[in-house]
Design a protein around this nucleic acid. Structure first.
Lengths: 191, 191
DNA sequence: GACTTCCATTAACAATTGATAAAAGAACCT
DNA sequence: AGGTTCTTTTATCAATTGTTAATGGAAGTC
């Protein structure tokens, strides 16, 4: 389990074993059932999360009461950094497990303290933040200036194989189209 | 000039005169000509900016070489926080003055040090960050799930009167539509 | 296994939007 | 002031997408 976390971190920004020990001491492991909303908007949340196994999504509810997918998180990935999804200790998004989900979590305040004290961990934390912000701007550019087909192609590159693992309605929502349009595009792209 | 900066700050998160003095000591004032790109992608940028007068936009260049508007900044507003637009001291976006532009700037490292040492300034800085992240998610939700007309209406509420002050091509780009579609929608909304 | 519910696909129609061209108006330059 | 360039609007046609309904398949429940 800890090896997975170590690999996740090293793939983003390599850190020494000594630094990893600082993180490891603080890790906790959690499992969520498929369909479980494990972080709710406007509720307290004080952790950072590493996805060890399974898939989840972040989402919001639009004025019509529908779920709008913001992002997917697959195994060996890290949930959006605490600072980007929590304000006044209240979460700005919902997170739901789309399969059974295993995560390693670390208290966000403790992790921030590690970042202050340890350069490697700070570099890692900054790399995660940067990656999240880049991901957000890519999505915004895609929604603003690419066709839905182009966005589906980009989605498939970013999340290989995810299409067979999560509901298409969630994918359509992430792409900003209806599930009927997604079905059409999938058919188009078979040729 | 300093009063304007003080008002900008207090509208977001009130701080004492004492705290404001800490910021004031570090302010510099800059003017940019209409059309001037004052922050370039992949170039060094180490400041936070308060817009005192005028209008500017942040943008990226898409693969076809066109400018994609990310955001507008009007007088009495603050540019996206350094941490959200700079990585490895290199800017992730372009910023261009759409009118003659007057800004007050403060070195980002110095400002971050103030945030560490002064609770009021830290609360202010965090409020700006939160506002920026909220603005980004609102835009993403708008692009993903609202019609272009709804987005134009929201744009008009967020940026009152801006429509007569900046090129419609920039607004269309911000809304994720062509300028021809913007023209149609404007006509629709006259009734 | 039978029944129910949900998801994905397909069809039909309408609405929205993009692409291209042209015209009108505004801004800029000499 | 005249000419040029740029911006905005309008028209036309095609493409894309949303909405609604129906169908087929998969998953869940008893």
């Amino acid at each position: 389990m800890n090896d997975i976390v170590k690999n996740i971190i090293n793939k983003i920004s390599p850190i020494s074993d000594k630094s990893f020990l600082e993180i490891e001491r603080l890790l906790e492991f959690e499992t969520y059932a498929k369909g479980e909303t494990f972080i709710s908007k406007n509720k307290r949340n004080n952790n950072e999360y590493f996805v060890l196994n399974g898939i989840c999504k972040s989402y919001l509810i639009n004025p019509e009461g529908e779920e709008i997918t913001i992002s997917f998180f697959v195994e060996n990935s890290i949930l959006s950094p605490h600072s980007t999804r929590v304000s006044n200790n209240k979460s700005s998004y919902y997170f739901k497990a789309l399969t059974e989900l295993e995560v390693a979590s670390i208290n966000a305040v403790a992790f921030e303290k590690l970042m202050i004290d340890n350069l490697e961990i700070r570099n890692f934390g900054n790399a995660v933040l940067f990656k999240e912000l880049q991901s957000k701007v890519e999505k915004e550019i895609g929604l603003a200036s690419f066709t839905a087909k182009e966005r589906l192609i980009a989605f498939r590159q970013k999340y290989k194989g995810l299409e067979n693992l999560v509901p298409h309605t969630d994918i359509a929502s992430y792409l900003g189209i209806t599930n009927i349009s997604l079905s059409r595009l999938r058919k188009d792209l078979l040729e």
